[in-house]
């Protein structure tokens, strides 16, 4: 999950002029490591209205066949805007502590 350690180039091989060559390079930079809260998707309650998908500032809401299926935790920063905006009564997304979620995963 964490960003892969890359060998940093020296000044002789680094692209000149503060350039990063090639597009889509942000994909390799995983920002999910900053997260302290994690969204949990509750499929039973979710109506796939796509409100969370539209609001997510990191485009981290995963959608398959028109249905919300979870979150891309490589990029989710845990801001909670998805849970806050979820219009379903009782909320189809809940925010839990990242620490606890990780502990849970290990079990």
């Amino acid at each position: 999950m964490a960003t892969k350690k890359i060998e940093k180039p020296g000044w002789k091989t680094l692209p000149e002029g503060d350039l990063i060559i090639g597009g889509g390079t942000a994909k390799d930079f995983h920002t999910g490591g900053w997260r302290s809260m994690r969204p949990i998707h509750i499929p039973e309650k979710c109506v796939s209205c796509m409100t969370c998908w539209a609001y997510c500032p990191d485009s981290a809401v995963l959608v398959k066949d028109g249905k919300v299926v979870g979150f891309n935790l490589d990029f989710c920063k845990g801001c909670g805007i998805c849970a806050y905006e979820c219009p379903v009564k009782g909320k189809a997304i809940k925010m839990v502590s990242e620490k606890e979620a990780k502990a849970q995963e290990k079990k």
Binding site: L14, D18, I20, I21, G23
Partner: peptide
């Protein structure tokens, strides 16, 4: 495609200046 003027922290700024 390229990115121009990305943020250089302590780990890259010096290399760019050296260039």
């Amino acid at each position: 495609p390229i990115t121009v003027g990305a943020l250089d922290f302590t780990d890259y700024y010096f290399e760019h200046k050296r260039q």
